[in-house]
């Protein structure tokens, strides 16, 4: 178990270092001089050069990389070119939107998918299964931003139950803030739930064919108990894997949904920063998201070891 976890941790660290090199290198080759961008087209060559010196853009490549990385490690992400505030402030301001949104969406998607998967797997081939999987098939095909537009039309424009977009901030109270995250969370959750329900069903069906399930049934264990105690637990590995991938997707992949609902989240921050060539923001946020993805995957690996005792012996 220790060896398994150590190996996973090692791989995660290597991936993280490589990722930082890639992010740094990519932004290094991006056309557009940030100093020139800040000063405008009318600035003289000397002024631009002076600002480049000030921003440390003229230092050798390795020095700048190390400076950037050590900054990241001490949570000093530098200052945004366009907003002229520390990047960490921007990030913290946006995380309080993106993180709750991702968590609500994941909770919703799990709350829908696991029961549907269980229901479908236990009634394999029956009409209920066919209907549920038909709906899942449809759900997988729906682009979440189109679904979001339809939700806006129905619940915001037509029924006027919730705001069509924007975010009042948590200072406006928990309920108004949650209310404005509701539609985006549903829009994100439904297609995810469709995928997760299919995975849950197929993993369960696989497990239900195992001998130990028959044994459990043969010794008189009620079907429901078999389903929850033996089948679901054993089917969890693929389900947890997909959930990990989905959480990572939800944190970073909300760019489009945040655009639909005008939510001031991380996705919109990075999207705007890219179009404004605010590279220091792009660098930091992308690196932060990548680190989160790697951390979540590591967490998933650790969960394997907890869920599946067989993995503990292996390295």
């Amino acid at each position: 178990m220790i060896a398994y976890l150590a190996k996973r941790l090692g791989i995660a660290t290597v991936t993280l270092v490589l990722a930082s090199l890639v992010v740094f290198a990519v932004l290094e080759i991006v056309p557009g001089d940030p100093a020139r961008l800040m000063l405008g087209m009318n600035a003289s060559e000397a002024q631009v050069e002076q600002l480049r010196d000030q921003m440390g853009l003229n230092a050798p490549l390795i020095e700048r990389y190390l400076h950037w990385v050590s900054g990241l490690l001490s949570l000093d992400f530098g200052r945004s070119y366009t907003y002229s505030v520390p990047v960490i402030d921007l990030v913290l301001e946006r995380v309080v939107v993106s993180l709750p949104l991702a968590l609500i969406a994941l909770a919703l998607s799990t709350a829908i998918a696991i029961p549907v998967g269980l229901y479908s797997a236990s009634r394999r081939g029956a009409a209920g299964d066919a209907v549920a999987m038909g709906a899942a098939q449809l759900g997988v095909a729906v682009p979440n931003f189109w679904f979001a537009l339809m939700l806006v039309y129905l619940f915001a424009v037509w029924l006027r139950w919730v705001p069509a977009g924007g975010f009042p901030g948590w200072s406006a109270g928990v309920w108004p803030a949650l209310k404005s995250l509701l539609l985006p969370a549903i829009a994100l959750a439904l297609p995810q739930a469709a995928i997760l329900a299919r995975v849950t069903r197929s993993a369960l069906i696989e497990v239900l064919n195992e001998d130990y399930i028959r044994t459990a049934r043969a010794k008189g264990m009620p079907y429901r108990a078999v389903l929850w105690r033996h089948a679901l637990r054993n089917a969890l590995i693929p389900v947890v894997t997909i959930m990990g991938l989905q959480f990572a997707f939800l944190l970073a992949g909300t760019i489009i949904i945040e655009n639909v609902f005008y939510l001031p989240g991380l996705g919109r921050l990075v999207f705007q920063a890219i179009t404004q060539r605010d590279l220091i923001v792009v660098e930091s946020v992308v690196m932060l998201l990548v680190a989160t993805v790697i951390a979540v995957n590591l967490l998933v690996d650790f969960t394997y070891a907890i869920v599946d005792p067989r993995l503990r012996g292996r390295s």
């Binding site: 056309p31 992949g253 792009v282 992308v286 990548v290 790697i294």
Partner: peptide, 22 residues
């Protein structure tokens, strides 16, 4: 395979946006 892990660590949509924006 480590290289594969690396690419998977970048959220696909985010990177696609970066590539097209750049």
């Amino acid at each position: 395979m480590r290289l594969n892990d690396l690419v998977f660590a970048f959220p696909a949509l985010l990177s696609a946006i970066m590539i097209t924006a750049i």
